[in-house]
Amino acid sequence: MTADILSCNFFELFDIPVSYEIDIDLIQQRYRELQKVVHPDRFVNASDKERRISMQQTSWINEALNTLRQPVDRAIYLLKLKNVDLNLENETTMDAEFLMEQMEMREALSSISSKEDPISELDRFSAQIKSKMQSLIKGFAAAYENDQLDEAKEWIRKMQFMQKARKEVDELSAKIEDELF
């Protein structure tokens, strides 16, 4: 009873099995149920202590949702639960074919702003990244379910590449939109 609720893991919090495959609708539904109970709006007239606890609990539930709904963050979190050390800053994928593909993508991206309709060009690019990300996600899921953790780590490194590419596309879109108007 007095055990600190903030110490259970994100899967326990939403009462779902620890797995890479998640039912996002179910998580969101339980997220809403929890928020209805802990959110600071329920404690507007309460004591400082209650308000502080409410803020901590809500922040933590928000972090849980944010972590689980992002495919890359969720993957990293799962490996963390297995005590796998992910020294992601100092390790990188060595898959030559993958790296080559990444370089080609960057090159295509850098010439996009001179295209006739850069915005729809970027939309196409986004869709492409999305589908590539999907296959990486499948790769990680399979490795993780089979407990091949080193392989799972390799998938995460690739996912991070793709995530970075997506971020660059988004930033470029924002920049082009700003320049157009």
Binding site: M1, E33, V37, V38, K49, I53
Partner: peptide, 24 residues
Amino acid sequence: LESACADYVARRMNTNIRNAMQGH
């Protein structure tokens, strides 16, 4: 009074969220 109730408040909040977790 609020400081006398501090632990009680924390326990209630904890129970509160537990109920929500189990009650879904």
